[in-house]
Design a protein around this nucleic acid. Structure first.
Length: 324
DNA sequence: AAACATCTCAACCGCGGATAT
DNA sequence: CATATCCGCGGTTGAGATGTT
């Protein structure tokens, strides 16, 4: 039953196309149209499968294909359409004359996705990221900054100012996480609980101005457990894990420096499994143990770190850009 | 200059829906 | 209706290009 079996495709050529093959395909399609892709290779005198011919034509040889860099307008269009359509590259391509789905897909994966991640935006949801990894580069920079400050011979007044600034920025960071989470949370009940949580945090900050907002301070606040997770059903993870902080303080590199610190001795391909922008963890709850495993196993067994805990690190955009 | 790491993108693979028999 | 193939799509790969040490 069904269609007659297709001819044997064994021995068909794969890999990059030669100029001769391109010419054969071009000439045939311009003369006859592509018709059945399955039958085309034989008719055109090509030792390729139909699929390969179709791909070569649609992604490279088609005369109306626009090549070269994507314009700012095209970039915006892709971003907007991706918000609506997701990874429906062919659907997105229909709105960008001359661009193929493959080209758009590649552009997304190599440029736009990374750009969004650097901006702290989750490329899949197009919303601000609220997980630990989104803030990691900033946190590392701030750890360096903090160590630098600690090494300076400050007077008492400067030290007080430092503590207050740290407190304020720390609060600002926590609040930004919570507001991001609130914007994501769909249900009114979740939003209201977030609001009350934010208010709780504000009260703490005013009652204890010179102190850092420590995990123990968070303990007992509605919705946050001892491990530092916002207890949740549908809320994104907001983690204040105080067991993490063993980042190499001498490093002025980005995420990858800590990555190398984590798994010395591993080969490079394995390293790329960690923290690379292509393998970021999901936005859903990030278990503290996973973070420990990724960043540093040494801190998970209770060994105290000489460096600041994440919950103590402050965050300020201007400072970040200077010290990153 | 060499070695190594990272990036880019053309091409491949596998899956699922559409279609032919 | 069942089965086999075609076609298009999205994810992934890997060779070459480029950048960094």
């Amino acid at each position: 039953m069904g269609r007659p079996p297709s001819s044997d495709e064994n021995g068909l050529k794969k890999g990059p196309w030669t100029t001769e093959e391109d010419e054969k395909l071009m000439i045939y399609i311009q003369k006859h149209g592509h018709g059945s892709w399955r039958a085309l290779p034989q008719l055109a005198g090509l030792n390729r499968c139909g699929k390969s011919c179709r791909l070569r034509w649609t992604n490279y040889l088609k005369p109306d294909i626009k090549r070269g860099k994507f314009s700012q307008e095209e970039e915006q269009t892709i971003l907007q359409l991706h918000t609506i359509l997701g990874n429906k590259w062919s659907a997105i391509a229909k709105h960008l004359p001359g661009r193929t789905d493959n080209e758009i897909k590649n552009f997304w994966n190599t440029h736009l996705r990374k750009k969004l991640i650097k901006m702290g935006i989750d490329p899949m949801t197009h919303r601000p990221r609220t997980d630990f990894f989104a803030a990691l580069p900033q946190l590392i920079a701030l750890a360096n900054l903090r160590q630098f400050i600690n090494q300076q011979p400050w007077d008492d007044h400067t030290a007080r100012l430092q503590a207050q600034t740290a407190q304020a920025a720390n609060l600002q960071y926590v609040q930004s996480l919570l507001h991001s989470a609130a914007s994501i949370a769909a249900s009114p009940t979740t939003s209201s609980s977030l609001n009350s949580l934010t208010m709780d945090l504000e009260q703490i900050s005013f009652l204890n101005p010179p102190q850092m907002l420590s995990p123990s301070a968070l303990e007992g606040i509605s919705g946050i457990d001892l491990a530092g997770h916002v207890s949740q059903s549908q809320m994104p993870s907001v983690t204040f894990d105080h067991t993490i902080g063993n980042i190499n303080p001498g490093s002025h590199n980005n995420v990858e420096s800590s990555e190398q610190h984590c798994d010395e001795g591993e080969n490079s391909s394995k390293k790329r499994l960690f923290l690379s922008e292509n393998s970021l963890p999901p936005l859903t709850d990030m278990a503290a143990s996973n973070i420990c495993n990724t960043i540093s196993t040494s801190n998970c067994d209770g060994v105290s770190s000489p460096f600041p805990s994440w919950s103590e690190i402050l965050l300020d955009e201007e400072l970040l850009s200077e010290f990153a």
